[in-house]
Nucleic acid binder design. Structure first.
Lengths: 347, 347
DNA sequence: CTGAAAGCGCTTACAG
DNA sequence: CTGAAAGCGCTTACAG
């Protein structure tokens, strides 16, 4: 069996409670006793039992990470590098504060819901980070009802108030990006976004539409597409757009992974980007400078989104008086070769 | 406070031990009592405390996932989609057996080592999956010394015996891939691989070299490159190769992410793939069909690697008599447009 | 078939 | 400054 606090106590000729205090580095214990006890701990290779400690403490020093449902391979979220990157960010802060990370294993919505219930009710984690935001999400509603410390990466639905979230200003940067396309001379601009129930899609669409409206450019309904699948979805959207009487001259895409599928579909159709079609996108994923042509995209600082989310959830956990807040991570448009001025001049 | 087993017992007018047996669905309890107790559990919204249970059980139903060190951004492992995919596979099996997943948060080697120690000594997890294999890895040595249930994704170093691992037959498929290049007429073939201490790099290099040797094709030392960085590493390697008196006509790359950097570097140099240079690679990551040109690469079934690793570690945990074994996940060469016959014919 | 009791390995008021 | 005792919320032999 593993060595316990009692073994240390016996060997060091002190009480178990003293050993416990040495572990906690309590100021009440003499340096002399501490040294003595620590020596024995080293000798016996002592390591505190996680569960015993958590049980006595009613705290776990663990954070749960909730991934979005990914129905199947080919789905936009399935292999989206976004998640690996955001987890890296979470991980970095969590590590610095000695928090551990738990991830959900559910694929479908109901599974994820029960994973979250296990985490919350089973007191497995002290707080949760939700990596997506969508309307009528039972998981989010559950966390709100339970009043459990959690942070959202993304913008909350309108009907959910008083929660802490970390997000980019997707609306503002979408406006900026749309204005950029307009400044290049584009008037016929289409939109291809991920699932419409996702808040991030909504926000980006809103910025897109409002900007065009303000510029008095009308957007036909046929210009607005939503899809969840990289290959088939991208291809179908592109085909639809190209077969219109007035096809767009630029496509505003909400995710680099989706843009990858779209570039591919355009390429298969023999449409040259940026000469015959412009494409802009979001997230600046690692491959987006390697596509052909390299993508004009929005740097959203994924890692930082994760880092701030972790910082916020730890704050919620450790400071019960902390109130909900919203943290905005800056964005930047990265101009590459998938866009150029309509009149022929480069960008 | 949360509702406990005692609350249920009081309400259902039974002993706490009976409640516990109902939770475990013990056959010793009458259906009648079970029903009665379950009703109360539902009413009060009972959920077992994870830590109390683990403490009493000495088992956690959790698996620890150890990620490789990723020194910094731009590093080959940092955003490599391989890991997200392998974790999906692990996740799928774990979920089916109701295991939870813990991931390490350390970035540097020593941090990872201490994460693993925490997991093992603190009895946080019942078993571990190591997502990389390299020579003289203190983490692996520690797990072996502690005789802790773990499974390696990859091939173990030669000096480590009797461990369970899940891997592709990298040697064989590298031979196959090299033969394929030879069959296209290539004789001057260079190798660009990830870090040389990684077993996967070694295995792929060995298959590569042996095949050329058997075909009596000599490989100059200058043809063998190793790098850890996508952009700079890829660029430098390509520049070095192109400045040789006899530059290669094909490059054998060990990872799609690295290949991405290499395609980019070639493109910048104005070298056309596959007309002036062929490129083959490994892993069939999601973007590899979208590169220009699409990559000829090896499907290694990453998801399945993860799935089998999870299955194996659960077996090790639950069946103490199970002996170490090696599971080989099949591979397949996917021929795309980055390769073609040297004499001009396509593939 | 069910209950009382001990134990898993910690922490933390309460004494002294 | 240190110790004895109770408790965190479960499980599981042992009785009956």
């Amino acid at each position: 069996m593993a060595v316990t606090i009692k073994d240390i106590a016996r060997e060091a000729k002190v009480a178990p409670s003293t050993v416990s205090r040495v572990i906690a580095d309590s100021p009440k214990i003499t340096e002399r006793t501490k040294k003595k006890v620590r020596k024995v701990m080293d000798q016996l290779g002592y390591y505190p039992n996680f569960h015993a400690r958590n049980l006595a403490n009613r705290a776990t020093k663990s954070i749960g990470i909730v991934m979005p449902a990914s129905v199947r391979k080919g789905n936009l979220t399935f292999q989206n590098p976004f998640f690996q990157d955001v987890i890296k960010g979470i991980s970095a802060f969590a590590h610095s504060e000695e928090y551990s990370l738990y991830i959900t294993t559910g694929e479908a919505e109901e599974e994820i819901y029960s994973d979250v219930m296990k985490m919350v009710k089973g007191r497995r984690v002290d707080g949760i980070i939700l990596l997506y935001s969508s309307d009528n999400d039972p998981v989010m509603e559950y966390l709100v009802d339970e009043n459990f410390p959690f942070v959202l990466v993304g913008k909350p639905p309108e009907d959910i108030k008083n929660i802490t979230y970390v997000d980019n200003d997707n609306y503002a940067v979408s406006r900026e990006l749309t204005s950029f396309l307009i400044s290049l001379g584009h008037k016929r601009i289409a939109f291809i976004g991920g699932h419409e129930k996702l808040l991030v899609t909504k926000n980006r669409l809103a910025g897109f539409l409002d900007t065009l409206l303000l510029s008095k450019i009308t957007v036909p309904k046929t210009y607005i597409k939503h899809t969840d699948f990289i290959m088939d979805g991208g291809k179908k959207s592109v085909n639809d757009l190209l077969s219109l009487k007035e096809p767009p001259t630029a496509i505003f895409v909400t995710d680099d992974v989706l843009a990858l599928g779209i570039l591919n579909a355009l390429n298969e159709k023999g449409i040259s980007v940026p000469n015959e079609m412009n494409v802009v996108s979001f997230n600046n994923l690692f491959f987006s400078e390697f596509t052909s042509p390299p993508l004009t995209t929005v740097e959203v600082n994924i890692y930082q989104l994760g880092y701030e989310a972790a910082r916020s959830v730890v704050e919620l956990i450790e400071d019960e008086n902390s109130s909900p807040k919203c943290i905005t991570v800056p964005t930047e448009i990265i101009i590459r070769k998938s866009t150029k001025s309509l009149d022929g001049k480069n960008n």
